[in-house]
Design a protein around this nucleic acid. Structure first.
Lengths: 352, 352
DNA sequence: AGTTATAGTTTACGCGCGAAAATATTTTAC
DNA sequence: GTAAAATATTTTCGCGCGTAAACTATAACT
């Protein structure tokens, strides 16, 4: 039906399976099988013969047959809550690269912001018998028992959003440190900040950041001031914009400094400020200082560029992946649940 | 090794394969097989018996065994050039949803902006014997023969970037219409625009837009004016910002109206303008009007919000997917290569 | 009731490979 | 140079399922 005329190779030896390929090389199939599992595991002489033949007829093992018979595949699942969020797109990208470089086959999935789809994804992933899974759960709205069950069956490292007791390990950023750094900076350089957040955030990090804000303000002897805006879903910029317009049109913020729970909300806030003619920045003549958390990939291109605290993307991705490989080598279980929090870095730009 | 204690189900009937499940139901395995391929294909009475049993022991066919034996899998590959670009993330998201809803199993891949990785992805995808593939190629830098070979072997619908003669169909947006709409609008409402683009764009759409710009300007009797900036890779915002700063510091644009080849470049331009204190917008008192193409997901949150021409994401995703299903049903070949271009919509915001 | 048609079910076989056990080969030690 | 150990290779079996062909039960006609 498709491309019946032969491949581009010359000798037209159409290899259909490992048997035929082994016959062509002149050795038995299981030896070829061993070669594909680990080229080092066969004698150098036979290895060469295989590799020479490989150049002539580009045979590759049937991936389904391989995975059916292997007890553990080389598949690594990567699951994020929402792939259209550049933050997750970026970290997924980094994780994918590491999987490929380590000889794994990444399988990337998004929960599309929906708990039921998250379960579907995990259910589908389970069937793939993955060697391991890197999972950033939806968080608060995740179906906890289902996630837990999955983590019991498949070696899983959680990242970004922690769920206590679930998964063999968690790798993320230190939410307290995010906030302590921004609050510290803002209070040192101007008015203490109020805090701009969603009232019912899906992500548990948001709650930790609010708590950190309270703690820091208390510690520094300032009155905390919370602006919790309405909104659900993953259109954070629009939620932030709407919420901010609402606040601005009702008299504005109580201080000239606003700390946003995350950059996407901050981007929405900046948009609202611009619409209302407020000048944002730390220069004299500005009406408002705005800072935030995450270092979203576009934060440096907002107007003004957004002062924020940055995830150490690289460290998080590295450690999450190496933790997973450790977990896989340990047989899928750690003696104790491992948690690793990386310290964010304050990124001073022009919004605060 | 993992979770040795039984599942949550009651009767502890640990079904290991379809044989056991069929025995439990009391019918033969092939009938069960038929059921899973199409529940309608078995007698209602047996169907009910299967579904009753299914509730008690949540058996699901081994996906590898299924795919090994089926001539065509239910896998649909989705390949984009760069997943960390929100434009592709968004369209990939839409395509994924449609695949799932239609009972396919989407497999999402990014070429990470690299032609060699694009080939790797396609090579890996080929092994999955996908029913079909939705491919947005890297474009100009893609390894043409490899892409062509792949499309010959796997039913493939190209989207976003066309490559003539490759793939059975292409679905995208009409680049000429993008530009004709923006140029028309800009010239009607103010000075004719100069054109801001990358000198060596990876994406072929960029070339078509430049040509369209020339054509439109000529048609309207204005002198075209091109600003082609340096830069490679996928960090378009930064490329746009750097290029714009360069232009601004050397005396600025020749007109007060700039049309950007795409929104990401435009976001960089806006950032540069802000840095240099230029007021962008169509109001009196503004120094520059800026418009662009794509309607990038964040374009409405720039400061000022970006006037642009929007892809009809929905129509493109719908038609790309339905074209693929048509292609699959047609056996992988169309009599004639199908091309479909959707007309973008002008989105007036405040930047121009 | 006796064909024939039709849908449903079963028999029999094969897919392409991994893995343990059995056998052959090479290496090491003395 | 030979026996033991270490390493390679082959034999044999089985994984879980799709599918064509053979078969059987139900329905539809004369």
């Amino acid at each position: 039906m498709r491309d019946p005329n032969g491949s581009s190779r010359m000798s037209d030896t159409k290899i259909r399976n490992m048997e035929e390929f082994a016959a062509l090389v002149g050795i038995s199939r299981p030896t070829v099988s061993k070669y594909f599992q680990d080229p080092e595991s066969v004698r150098p002489s036979t290895r060469q013969r295989i590799e020479v033949a490989l150049k002539r007829c580009d045979y590759r093992p049937n991936i389904f047959a391989v995975n059916q018979n292997r007890k553990l595949t080389k598949i690594v699942g990567i699951v994020v809550p929402y792939l259209a969020d550049p933050f997750f797109a970026e970290i997924a990208r980094q994780l994918e690269r590491r999987c490929i470089d380590a000889g794994f086959r990444p399988a990337l999935y998004s929960a599309h912001g929906q708990p039921d789809l998250e379960i579907d994804v995990l259910d589908g992933l389970r069937l793939l018998k993955p060697a391991g899974v890197l999972l950033a759960p939806l968080g608060r709205i995740s179906h906890r028992p289902a996630i837990k069950q999955f983590c019991n069956e498949v070696p899983t490292v959680l990242f970004d959003s922690n769920m206590d007791g679930i998964g063999e390990a968690f790798v993320g950023s230190d939410n307290f440190s995010f906030v302590s750094q921004t609050v510290d900076y803002l209070t040192r350089t101007g008015e203490p900040p109020c805090f701009f957040e969603m009232k019912t955030p899906a992500n548990p990090n948001a709650n930790k950041r609010r708590i950190a804000y309270y703690k820091m303000m208390e510690q520094l002897g300032f009155e905390p001031n919370l602006y919790s805006i309405e909104g659900t879903g993953w259109a954070f910029e629009e939620i932030g914009r709407k919420g901010a317009l609402d606040i601005l049109d009702k008299g504005g913020f109580s201080t000239n400094t606003v700390l946003c729970s995350n950059d996407r909300l901050g981007i929405g806030l900046l948009s609202a400020c611009y619409e209302r003619g407020l000048r944002v920045g730390r220069d004299t003549g500005c009406d408002l200082r705005v800072a935030s958390h995450d270092d979203h990939p576009f934060s440096r291109f907002t107007c003004p560029s957004l002062t924020t605290a940055a995830h150490d993307y690289d460290a998080v991705a590295n450690h999450a992946f190496s933790t997973l490989t450790d977990l896989i080598e340990a047989g899928g279980k750690f003696d104790q649940r491992a948690e690793m929090l990386f310290t964010p870095k304050l990124v001073l730009r022009s919004s605060a």
